[in-house]
């Protein structure tokens, strides 16, 4: 461009200017190219779900990003550095080793009139995973999640054979103006689809059923403090929608919370509760 125009000569000033100019152009082009190449690689490697989840997680308020060990009182304050994927977390591994979870009596936890069976693992996005005797995993909505969505207007399930990733979208439910992405608790391949009536939505052949496979999910004595906190979050979300909190006096959530708050922006409430950005 510049070297062959009238008045240009190879003096220090022109060389510095030209060098800086082309360096800037190269940096801009390299940045765009690198982003495009990395994107292609990520898409080919099937990382779209993970990227979406990380984006959703980062957009959560700090108080919703707390470590599970804050829920159980082991830490006073701690942000989860792994986007709720405790499989990668050394702190969680050490804590579980040193302080195994206290056993809970009975078959289920009853929290504010909602039943949380203890035979399964819970994702903080309100799904559960239950390991069946045939090695498959059933995936469903927990009681609070089910009450938030009530009777769905529409349900979109993946086809058998499709892959599902932990923290990725398991299925979509539409209720009123809310189109909710429900997160998958496990990695695996969908082999059968269910429905709200059957109590579960997906039967998945998990990639692994080893000790580490469900380590990121809540269980046993973690369930009660988590749900109590979730109810507080729900109250907060409803308050923000200009609706009076109905649980402060010790009442229990109704079976179809969406129907009880017709004026609330249900999309916003569900986004908050199902950890969607």
């Amino acid at each position: 461009m510049l070297p062959w125009i009238y008045g240009f000569d190879w003096n220090t000033g022109h060389i510095v200017f030209l060098g800086a100019f082309y360096a800037v152009l190269a940096a801009i082009a390299a940045t765009l190219t690198a982003a495009a190449i990395r994107s292609l690689r990520a898409i080919r490697a099937g990382q779209t779900d993970a990227i979406r989840w990380h984006g959703d997680f980062e957009s959560l308020p700090e108080r919703d990003q707390v470590c599970r060990h804050v829920l159980t009182g082991e830490f006073r304050e701690r942000q989860c550095p792994h986007a709720f994927d405790c499989r990668e977390c050394e702190t969680h591994a050490k804590l579980i080793e040193r302080h195994p979870l206290a056993p809970v009596a009975g078959h289920e936890e009853d929290v504010s009139g909602m039943a949380f069976p203890l035979d399964r693992f819970y994702h903080r996005g309100h799904t559960w995973a239950r390991l069946e005797t045939d090695g498959t995993v059933l995936v469903g909505l927990d009681e609070l999640g089910a009450r938030l969505l009530g009777v769905p207007d529409a349900l979109t399930l993946p086809q058998p054979g499709e892959r599902t990733h932990a923290n990725g979208a398991a299925f979509h439910i539409r209720r009123r103006n809310a189109d909710v992405r429900v997160v998958s608790p496990v990695d695996g391949t969908v082999i059968e689809t269910g429905s709200a009536g059957r109590g579960w939505y997906l039967r998945v052949k998990p990639d692994s059923t080893g000790a580490n496979a469900f380590r990121h999910l809540l269980r046993g004595s973690e369930i009660r403090p988590w749900i109590e906190r979730e109810i507080e979050r729900l109250q907060l979300a409803l308050t923000a929608e200009g609706t009076a909190p109905a649980l402060a006096d010790g009442g229990v959530p109704v079976s179809d919370i969406a129907a009880a708050y017709p004026a609330a922006d249900w999309d916003a409430v569900c986004g908050e509760m199902f950890l969607e950005g």
Binding site: A35, S39, A42, I51
Partner: peptide, 21 residues
Amino acid sequence: VPSFLVFEHKLHNLVYVLAGV
């Protein structure tokens, strides 16, 4: 749109280069 989502994420990761430039 998955490609938009991924490109946005990857571009955002490199934004410090653009900030410097």
